[in-house]
Amino acid sequence: MSKAVPVISVRDIEVEYPGHPPVKAVRGVSFDLVGGEVVGLVGESGCGKSTMARVLTGLVAPSAGRVEYQGLELRALGVGRRPLADTGIQMVFQDPGSSLNPRRRVGAQIQDGLDLAAKRRARAGGRLGDKLLPDAAGSPDAAASHPATPGEWLERVGLDRKDAPRFPRSFSGGQRQRIATARALAAEPNVLIGDEPISALDASTQAKVAYLMSRLTVSQGAALLFISHDLSVVRLIADRLLVMWAGRIVESGPTQEVWSHPGHPYTKTLLAAIPTPDGSGRLPTVPTGQSDFDAPPVIH
């Protein structure tokens, strides 16, 4: 997978928020995203993971470093509309209550995504640049790879096509995140960024929505960057993990490697602190300090 051409390249990104003193939220982050892979970006509050999501969507301008999207430098948003080409990066936000426009019918919001894809396709003079991966081509989702109507998209995310004229408020949190996923994927992105997209959902819904997001994104040949503070679900859907602490990636590698053999002191501490729902009554390990968290990053 590392030999494939990355759709996004992040190089030495630094982000500073103004203040006295200024806050360095991100201190030199680099990674690639390749079409068809699911990458989990995990860390605790303040580690810089959401700032990275904002950089990748152009909402925050990095103070150093660059992001290349399809070979071109991604510029931060100005006052105008987002450049059409950049709408190939889509996002699903955390709060299902505010990630959809409450005053518009869900069908119309999904139609926005479809219209975006159509515009990009027209400008590109035909098909969009994204390609189906060979293994995804055989999956059940590939048969009708790109649903053409909001109704078909609703069915794709497990809802009813008759739901299209309804407003977001009449859906539960999990259903709204499904709709937000449909809206984002209808724009035929080649990168989908989920910033804590399941954190506000009940536990029984979290895994289902996360799996749906990853399955549909991969079947479109797009890359999914799944940002979360909760490793227990991420480890099931991600091919690779990036662990952030204090604005840096301290460990990266295939999910199973990082989960089973964490190398960095912070990753070890983080994994040991996750309570296991096994009924054992075992308390999670209390961190003893963070003196060694500045150790060099571990790359599997």
């Binding site: 536990a203 029984s204 819904t205 979290q206 895994a207 289902k208 799996y211 749906l212 399955r215 227990s232 679900v233 480890r235 099931l236 859907i237 296991t276 729902p277 096994d278 009924g279």
Partner: peptide
């Protein structure tokens, strides 16, 4: 049982991506 089945790491819960696929 339903709650535990949808939970990563629980007894009888989700342990792998294959479990996720089965559940969905």
């Amino acid at each position: 049982r339903e709650l535990l089945a949808a939970l990563p790491g629980a007894p009888g819960g989700l342990q792998s991506r294959a479990d996720l696929a089965r559940m969905s």
